[in-house]
């Protein structure tokens, strides 16, 4: 197979066991450049665990994660970040006592590999700050750039989480329930950002999401996890209509759909 035919991201028989419990069971899936794949499934289906194995927070018990055809299963989380896997977390995961600007600036600084600079003043590296301000402007956070991340309301913290992810300029962007706990008027800001990323058609987006209207409007493809196994994979309408999804997921959680 020529190198160009490799998908951007691929998991092959990816499995993790906690003691006797198989949390993710041999999931094989390919993600093509420019695609947006939604990963759905009931709580406890293994979606976040699957994400953690791709971005490197958890070590797979078996199987492989490949980025552009290269096996990255043995790499640490920071090494994967530098190769282009970016992750936004389900539970807001920021630097709470640093400023909103600094949260984004640190991500840009990491991408540019400047972290080990001991003798330059960080405040003198103006281009990093300008870049961070542009991103904060896009996420409607610029007015609060000087406040601590902890001072932001929940929706603001979710937006900051996305701003940090975008600041890393990853090839693969992984969103874990980006709109969870957001008020109705805050959701569009995040969705527009994801739509904008998708519109570029150069990035690969993975999205864990419970809200079915969000999934329908964004995804090119849906995969369904149930008890750690991949049970359905295909275009949104087809997957949502399939009996296995109706029973395994939507039937159980119709209140949320």
């Amino acid at each position: 197979m020529p190198a160009s035919s490799h998908p951007v991201l691929e998991t092959e028989n990816l499995t993790i066991r906690f003691g006797g419990h198989v949390a993710v069971d041999s999931v094989s899936c390919r993600y093509e450049s420019g695609s947006l794949t939604a990963i759905v499934g009931p709580n406890g289906a293994g979606k976040t665990t699957y994400f953690n194995m791709i971005s490197g927070q958890l070590k797979a018990s078996a199987g492989q994660v490949r980025l552009f055809g290269e096996d990255i299963t043995g790499l640490s989380a920071p090494a994967r970040t530098h190769r282009g896997i970016g992750r936004a977390f389900q539970l807001t995961n920021l630097f709470p006592n640093l400023t909103v600007l600094e949260n984004v600036r640190l991500a840009i600084q990491s991408r540019r590999g400047l972290g080990l600079n001991l003798l330059t003043r960080a405040s003198a590296l103006g281009s990093l700050i300008e870049e961070a301000e542009i991103l904060l402007d896009r996420t409607n956070l610029i007015e609060r750039a000087g406040e601590t991340a902890a001072a932001l309301p929940h929706g603001g913290q979710r937006r900051l989480e996305v701003a940090v992810l975008v600041a890393l300029e990853p090839e693969v962007l992984m969103f874990d329930e980006p709109t969870a706990g957001m008020s109705a008027d805050e959701v569009p800001v995040i969705l527009d950002l994801i739509r904008e990323i998708k519109g570029d058609r150069t990035k690969t987006v993975l999205l864990v999401e419970h809200k079915m209207d969000v999934v329908r409007s964004l995804a090119d493809r849906i995969i369904v996890l149930h008890n750690g196994a991949l049970v359905a994979d295909g275009p949104p309408e087809e997957v949502i209509a399939s009996p296995i999804v109706q029973e395994a997921y939507l039937g159980v959680r119709s209140g949320h759909a």
Binding site: S55, A77, P78, L98
Partner: peptide
């Protein structure tokens, strides 16, 4: 600045590289 990030949230510092 990275040291402060590590103090604040080691997990996150790893995740951004």
């Amino acid at each position: 600045r990275v040291l402060q990030a590590i103090r604040e949230n080691t997990f996150r510092a790893e995740a951004i590289g």
